[in-house]
């Protein structure tokens, strides 16, 4: 459906993408959208490349996102952003953490890590917002808040007021982490 917004959250298994999709699901449902969120559990969570699809609009049928369909790709790791750009719509935006996590083939020396891949994508006309989310997360109080920092970056690009996001954070994360995650969200927004 043309009025459906498609958003991919990509990263490395164990980085906390499930919390980000939970937060988005809550936020978008509260905003009154029809929402579908699709994730894959099991084998792929063991340090492998992971993808979550979030789609919302007036009426959403498919829970998945194919080539040329994503309005946004939010990536928790640098080359994971580049792995999925075939799914990006023309004019779509990549938001990525600049953190580098070597996959096993790089660790073993069977492959090399393409460190300048974001510059390459930018040169080809892809809109890339690169953020050192790990540093901002640490500044907020926990390296684990990378997901919420990136949600902060994303929030600037979606037509939903910040206070709604903050309410969704309060309703999604454990009470003792709410303040830290709110700081992470604000840092992501550049505030």
């Amino acid at each position: 459906m043309s009025n459906t917004t498609s958003l991919m959250i990509v990263g490395v298994g164990g980085q906390g993408s499930l919390l980000a999709s939970k937060l988005l699901g809550r936020l978008l449902t509260d905003e009154g959208y029809d929402v579908k969120v699709s994730e894959v559990h099991g084998m792929s969570q063991r340090g492998g490349s992971v993808v979550t699809y979030v789609r919302y609009g007036e009426k959403v049928y498919s829970p998945v996102i194919g080539e040329g369909e994503a309005d946004f790709i939010v990536s928790f790791e640098k080359i994971e952003a580049a792995r999925y750009t075939a799914c990006l719509k023309e004019g779509g935006t990549v938001i990525t953490n600049t953190q580098q996590i070597d996959p096993m083939p790089v660790i073993t020396g069977a492959a090399t890590y393409p460190a300048s891949v974001l510059e390459e994508l930018t040169a080809k006309g892809v809109k890339v917002t690169a953020v050192d989310a790990l540093s901002l997360a640490k500044e907020a109080g926990s390296a684990k808040a990378v997901n919420i920092v990136l949600m902060g970056v994303l929030s600037k690009l979606l037509p939903i007021p910040a206070e709604k996001w903050l309410a969704a954070i309060e309703n999604t994360v454990a009470p003792k982490f709410v303040e830290m995650n709110k700081r992470a969200f604000a840092l992501g927004r550049g505030e």
């Binding site: 084998m43 490349s49 779509g92 069977a110 393409p114």
Partner: peptide, 20 residues
């Protein structure tokens, strides 16, 4: 027609699951 997005020329190394 389905138009795929722009991809990098660099080879993106696979990231298979592995033991933690």
């Amino acid at each position: 027609t389905v138009t795929a997005g722009v991809t990098a020329d660099s080879v993106i190394p696979p990231r298979p699951p592995m033991m933690c």
